[in-house]
Design a protein around this nucleic acid. Structure first.
Lengths: 337, 337
DNA sequence: GAATTGCATGTAAGCGCTTTCATCCGTGGA
DNA sequence: TCCACGGATGAAAGCGCTTACATGCAATTC
């Protein structure tokens, strides 16, 4: 059945050294003679020894645990197609450390309080925070409490917190420019919610591109959506009603772009002949829409790796405190534009 | 900055009792006089005391941590639309316990070994295992090691492990029967991979329904897919080629059903007039396809709650060892059938 | 009123580890 | 040959908690 796990002491006895020495070997201290080390390692392997984390944390005050905190009142995060990738990315970034990944969901006031208290009491060494709405008090609370924290996505303007984000603005700009430079004269946009930085950034990228090509932003060419497919469909209809001659649209994310595509098809517009469409995110479905969706891809793996790396750096050097990483995006050319 | 967390001893001093008493209060031992308890609770609240898990585990040998283990060589799990829901479900099921959710990904041989060793060494109190392919050694290894474990999804036939699953067979049978009893004479199916129990179960549900209505299984009416949208499209084409008069199809999951729908549309078949389609899972997109997809829904919340509950029971009573829960599914009537 | 009981509370050991400090041994210089 | 030195190793304390056991007090019994 369940044999009690071997302890440091047993290893020490087997290797005929003291527990202190074994501990030094386990923790890679340089002050151990090679042959002693060898002997200890043999004993460790023989017994299948694995250090007891509880005992270790008790003395080191470190927990070797980092938390992925999902701070969201609703369950929107779970419909975020990137959430799984992010988890996977973090998980593989820490795969060859001793770190473990704790998942903390903070929905609603009560859980928020619980999570914050839990973290503040030093139960985790660091936090990666996914939080969608801007007025979340958690990011600030944690950093003020001195807990190493890294945000997924740019914080609100004015907040200085370490974060990793895609170059949403640059990506949007590139997408829109692509439309414009292909001779499209009337390019609209369907934005995301403007209370999220992603929403704002992608919209600003659109206006950047307009400005680059000497055009003015026309309010009638802008529709807002909430990142859902239905919102995209709805917004597309509105745009078309106001501007029947519209010939290009930059959509702030793929689900909305897919909704737009369907509306376009239903209304008999050919894509890309009549209207060119570019989305953002390159979700799995984007490759199989009709026509396949041209979209902007974020380097998800690079981003998660960067988050993990930034966090680890912050954990062992608290002075690092307002770094950030912005990752370049890439336009994936498919048939819709 | 980061004030050291208050300890039991400080609470004891403030409440003018011994640490033992405080501990008893914290652990809800009944042998404490109400007024003493009151005083201690006041001190706890005043200091914002939270027990140190490391110290506690060290003596109790419990970790108050359960792991969600995702055992999969590839990253398929992450494309599983239910994965987030499951996480969310477990997370809320343990929300008002002291338990924490640890996420362990085991891809590849190396991580598998690491995860197994980690778990065997008592670093978690219990495990919820999501594993897609049938020949995974982990489920058996864990149960044999005496680690309380609950599977998400039915294990291979012959394995006796506690699990929670949807009534895939019943759901498939109901869906197919619905098609049959609506007068569809030639009902085919697109199955999932038959090396997964879900795949097999849903296929058997189809044959059950056929048998119920006195029909024989016709091999030509069966196509296999890998649960992807493209596979669904491909399979649909094959089915139609062989049986142009096909007037109904039960598809083993929604993405494949969506693929099938698109093929049907591309080939000019009207849904449901010419061909009725029923999917399985009720993914978010199912409601917005054209026409909206009739599908079978699993009671995801009920299922995850059941998993958590089963696991907790197993944790404090190891004798419970081959229970399982099968949750009824529901046919969601929309326009496609 | 003394002896007994029962219950609340306190004392203290010890969980497995890291780390400080002391100890020991071999080396090289005088 | 002796001493000083430095580097490897060991002894032991202590991290914050739970719990077996001891203790003390009040209520109960005769």
């Amino acid at each position: 059945m369940r044999r009690p796990a071997p302890t440091l002491e047993e290893v020490a006895r087997l290797a005929a050294v003291s527990t202190a020495t074994v501990s030094r070997v386990v923790n890679r201290s340089p002050k151990v003679r090679p042959d002693t080390r060898k002997a200890v390692e043999k004993a460790i392997a023989h017994l299948g020894y694995v250090p007891n984390r509880a005992a270790r944390s008790l003395v080191t005050k470190r927990t070797d645990t980092i938390a992925l905190v999902v701070s969201e009142s609703e369950s929107r995060v779970f419909s975020d197609p990137f959430f799984p990738s992010i988890m996977q990315g973090i998980s593989s970034a820490i795969a060859d450390t001793e770190l473990q990944l704790l998942l903390l969901l903070a929905r609603g006031e009560r859980e928020h309080v619980k999570v914050e208290r839990y973290i503040r009491h030093g139960h985790v060494d660091g936090v990666i925070l996914m939080s969608l709405h801007g007025d979340d008090p958690l990011p600030r609370a944690l950093t003020e409490a001195g807990i190493p924290t890294v945000l997924s996505g740019r914080p609100r303007p004015g907040e200085r917190l370490p974060y990793v984000d895609a170059d949403n603005r640059g990506g949007a700009r590139a997408a829109t420019s692509h439309l414009l430079s292909a001779g499209r004269g009337k390019v609209g946009t369907i934005t995301g919610p403007l209370d999220m930085t992603v929403g704002v950034d992608r919209f600003e990228g659109y206006t950047d591109a307009l400005r680059d090509s000497g055009q003015r932003l026309r309010k009638g060419l802008v529709e807002h959506g909430d990142f859902s497919k239905e919102a995209g469909a709805r917004a597309m209809k509105a745009l078309l009603r106001r501007h029947p001659a519209l010939d290009g649209v930059f959509v702030a994310n793929d689900p909305m772009a897919i909704g737009a595509l369907e509306t376009l098809q239903a209304l008999g517009r050919r894509v890309p002949d009549d209207v060119a469409v570019i989305g953002f995110d390159d979700v799995a479905d984007a490759a199989t829409t009709n026509p396949p969706l041209t979209t902007v891809r974020q380097p998800l793996e690079v981003m998660t790796e960067a988050m993990a790396e930034l966090l680890l750096r912050r954990i062992d050097d608290a002075s690092v405190d307002d770094e950030f990483v912005v990752c370049p995006t890439r336009l994936i050319h498919r048939a819709s534009a």
